[in-house]
């Protein structure tokens, strides 16, 4: 994709999703994460390793920033300069936001990362040439690059540990980029299963691994265009619009008492993950 081509057709690239003339049908996968429920326990992150064949890189590679955790829990301290963080920390589960106008997609020279009709940002491993432009352009820094051939690296999956690997997912070799997929293998398996019944997936029939394990139920996942789905209802109640780069409620004088927001929305990646603000008691 040449730069001139890119520039000429910029609007089109930027505008593939979301649009009214090409509505999501029948699926648009999305999430809602409640930061007031999330305890920062990291169970979701480990479940993601278990589900998605993520390599454990070890201490040295971790030091070089080569950790592969598709789901990471960011920990923030209050910045009020007080001696103690006496309202605790804030934990933020961070993974690919499955942007509708994904900054990572437009820069891929070979189109290895692109959008699916059901609103996922997909990564085609065997097309990826490892330029890492996508990672550089991702505002959320949730793309992870295979600097090594982990399947053959010592002590990553020694002997019997290979038996734990999920056969629904490939092992990624050296030189390819990877990231959270919204557990696409679970979505596809679910779709196939209900296809025989001639229907589409109902809310709750597919859970992502992180959602399924989360002991506080902080993560809601589902089909945003299904009015019956929890995720649809949450987005609606929080008045967060997928296609907006600034929510109407935020334009109101004095702000809003709704907790829903999207991170770095103003950059116009149109993320598919809505977060709900943490709450702290005012009476104590």
């Amino acid at each position: 994709m040449s730069v001139s081509n890119l520039l000429e057709n910029w609007a089109e690239f930027r505008h593939t999703h979301p649009v009214d003339d090409v509505p999501h049908d029948p699926y648009k996968w999305a999430m809602s994460i409640d930061l007031d429920a999330c305890s920062g326990c990291n169970a979701c992150s480990i479940a993601c390793y278990a589900e998605n064949n993520i390599p454990v890189v070890g201490k040295d590679k971790f030091e070089h920033g080569q950790v592969m955790h598709w789901m990471r829990i960011e920990r923030y301290w209050p910045e009020d300069g007080r001696e103690f963080p006496d309202q605790g920390a804030t934990f933020l589960p961070m993974m690919c936001q499955q942007c509708e106008a994904a900054p990572c997609e437009t820069v891929c020279p070979v189109g290895a990362t692109n959008h699916t009709a059901d609103g996922l940002n997909s990564q085609i491993y065997n097309r990826c040439v490892g330029s890492r432009y996508c990672s550089a352009n991702c505002p959320f820094k949730v793309r992870y690059f295979n600097w090594y051939d982990y399947p053959t690296t010592e002590n990553v999956w020694p002997a019997e540990m290979t038996q734990q690997l999920n056969p629904d997912i490939t092992l990624r070799g050296k030189g390819v980029m990877e990231k959270c997929t919204f557990c696409v293998q679970r979505i596809r398996a679910g779709e196939r299963a209900v296809k025989n019944e001639g229907r589409i997936l109902r809310d709750g029939e597919v859970q992502t691994a992180c959602q399924q394990v989360c002991p506080t139920g902080a993560i809601t996942f589902g089909n945003l265009v299904d009015p019956e789905s929890k995720v649809h209802q949450k987005w609606k109640a929080q008045q967060v619009e997928l296609t907006a780069d600034e929510q109407e409620k935020d334009k109101e004088e004095g702000g809003t008492d709704l907790r829903g927001y999207r991170i770095l929305e103003e950059l116009r990646p149109y993320p598919s993950v809505m977060y709900m603000e943490r709450v702290r008691e005012s009476a104590i």
Partner: peptide, 30 residues
Amino acid sequence: KDEGFAGGAQHGKKIAMTKSSDQVDLSEEV
């Protein structure tokens, strides 16, 4: 460690947000 050089600061970006309990109405939520 996993935290970056910012060491847990958001530098004014709206990343991990907090509201005070008197600013929200949880009964309206789904």
